[in-house]
Structures are given as structure tokens and as C-alpha cells.
């Protein structure tokens, strides 16, 4: 489904991703952990197509097509969804209006008929129930004045409505209370299917108790430095990233001698 090969990304003249490779198969959940500033969000932005995140080397193939050649909106329509680490407030734009515009834009792009406001509202109500999101949030401006947790839940709500095939969740768990964390995990687990994959960026092992990953990667200094099963997250929780650094140094020393 997603194949990232030797990806180099430069932001504001600085190389952030330095040869990242990763393959996610249909139906898989991959967790990405790593220290602050490692380049996790940069990876999310680069996959979603944000301007200023220049790919200087490498390729990204998504369902057989060159993802990097597509505009952000085309990536979304082909099934890529990024839940932002810091969701953006958009004053004056109604949340429901925005979501319907997005939903219909994607359908139009794929040559499917658009939903009228009645049909869309019905869909939205169903999804709302699952996430236990307050109705009132729908009638406010996008993320404006939302609490930190409400913003994160709004991201997952959007994901539930748009039903992407690849969802990248960038620290969706940070800032959530325990109950909200469970709801968000439930929202994600409901969407898990053999056709849908997830890249879950997180700092906390706890989320992975609810969203059980197939593979855990450690991203450090712009590269994947370690991959493993779920226990890798547990080990990181116990020992921190110093353990990986120490091991890397040992490897380098062995290589040099």
C-alpha cells in the first residue's frame, strides 16, 4: 500500500529526513516513536504534501502511484489523511460546512455523486455517536476555541467521516484524558480493516495498549533506526531513547574497528 524509499526531506534549508525507508501493507498498523525533533511530524507533512517540505531524494509509492507527484487535495482524494499534531483554527468557517465541502470534493474527484446536506447530516450524526463528540462542536468554526482534546477528537471525527485508506495520526493521543483516549482508540479500531492502514505517531506506550500495532518503529535523526514488535514500545518506555543511542554507538564502534 505505502512504500517509502530513502526519503530525504528539507525544511527551511535544513535536512530533516535523511534516508527514511518504510513499507506499510494493507491492513497494517505501524507505530512511530522517537525523540522530539526527530522528524515524525515532518514525515506526516511530507506525505500529506505540505508546501515547504521539499523532497530532495527518494520515492513514495501509494497504491501503485507516485504520491509525491500529487497535490495535497489529490492525495486526500486518493485516501491519505493526516490527523494534525496541532489542528489549525479557521475562524469564520463552519465545521460542518467545511467537512461537507471536503467530503464532496473527494467524492467529486473520484467521480462519485456528491451528498446533499440532508444525506450528509445523517452520515455525520452516525459518526458523532461513535465518538461521543458534542453536537455543538459541529456548528462552531473549525477548531476555533476548541480545547486541546476537542481538537484532537475533531481530527478523528473527520477521519471517521472521510474514511481514508491511509491514516497518519500525529500525536493524536497527547492532550487527551483517559476516557477520550479510549474513545479515540475505539474510533480507530472501528475503522481497522484489511483495506486500511495506519501510521500512528506517539510518545506513549499507553495508546498502543488500545491500538495494538503490528510493527513499532523508532525514528531518530531523520531515519528509522529500529523496528520491532509491540514489545519495542514497552522497552522504550522502560529505558528511553538513550538505550538506542548507546546501541547505535556500539554498532558504529564495531563497524569502525
Amino acid at each position: 500500500m505505502l512504500k517509502i524509499d530513502n526519503l530525504h526531506v528539507r525544511v527551511a534549508g535544513k535536512d530533516i529526513l535523511k534516508g527514511l525507508s518504510l513499507e506499510v501493507k494493507s491492513g497494517e498498523v505501524h507505530a512511530i516513536m522517537g525523540p522530539n525533533g526527530a522528524g515524525k511530524s515532518t514525515l506526516g507533512y511530507a506525505l500529506a504534501g505540505r508546501e515547504g517540505y521539499d523532497v530532495t531524494q527518494g520515492t513514495v509509492t501509494f497504491n501503485g502511484q507516485d504520491l509525491l507527484a500529487l497535490a495535497p487535495e489529490a492525495r486526500a482524494a486518493s485516501g491519505v489523511f493526516l490527523a494534525f499534531q496541532y489542528p489549525v483554527e479557521i475562524p469564520g468557517v463552519n465545521n460542518t460546512y467545511f467537512l461537507r465541502a471536503a467530503y464532496n470534493a473527494q467524492r467529486k474527484f473520484r467521480g462519485e455523486p456528491e451528498f446533499d446536506s440532508m444525506a450528509f447530516l445523517k452520515l455525520v450524526r452516525e459518526k458523532l455517536k461513535v465518538l461521543h463528540l458534542k453536537d455543538e462542536l459541529l456548528n462552531r468554526a473549525v477548531n476555533e476555541g476548541f480545547s486541546g482534546g476537542e481538537k484532537k477528537r475533531n481530527e478523528i471525527f473527520q477521519m471517521a467521516v472521510l474514511e481514508p485508506t491511509l491514516a497518519i495520526l500525529d500525536e493524536t493521543d497527547s492532550g487527551l484524558d483517559i476516557d477520550a483516549l479510549k474513545l479515540v482508540a475505539e474510533g480507530v479500531n472501528r475503522l481497522r480493516s484489511p483495506e486500511r492502514s495506519f501510521l500512528v505517531i506517539t510518545h506513549y506506550q499507553r495508546l498502543l495498549d488500545y491500538i495494538v500495532p503490528d510493527i513499532v518503529h523508532v525514528l531518530s535523526d531523520g531515519r528509522i533506526v529500529q523496528s520491532g514488535g509491540k514489545d519495542l514500545a514497552l522497552k522504550l518506555e522502560d529505558e528511553g531513547y538513550a538505550w538506542i543511542k548507546a546501541r547505535k554507538l556500539a554498532e558504529q564502534a564495531a563497524f569502525a574497528s
Binding site: G49, E73, A76, V88, E89, I90, G92, L99, A102
Partner: peptide, 30 residues
């Protein structure tokens, strides 16, 4: 125009021209 807002809208599938239009209307109609 807020570039972050523009990217947010586009990342949800709204094309650039429409995203710009949405942000302009939101601004002017306040």
C-alpha cells in the same frame, strides 16, 4: 491568507481555488 489554514483545507481534499475562496469569504463576511 493563512497558509496553514489553506494547507489544512487542502489536506482534507478541498482544491486550492476552493480553499482560497472559502477563506476569503470567511474573512470578508465577518
Amino acid at each position: 491568507l493563512d497558509e496553514q489554514a489553506l494547507f489544512y483545507l487542502r489536506s482534507r481534499g478541498i482544491d486550492e481555488a476552493e480553499a482560497r475562496r472559502i477563506l476569503q469569504v470567511a474573512f470578508a463576511r465577518a
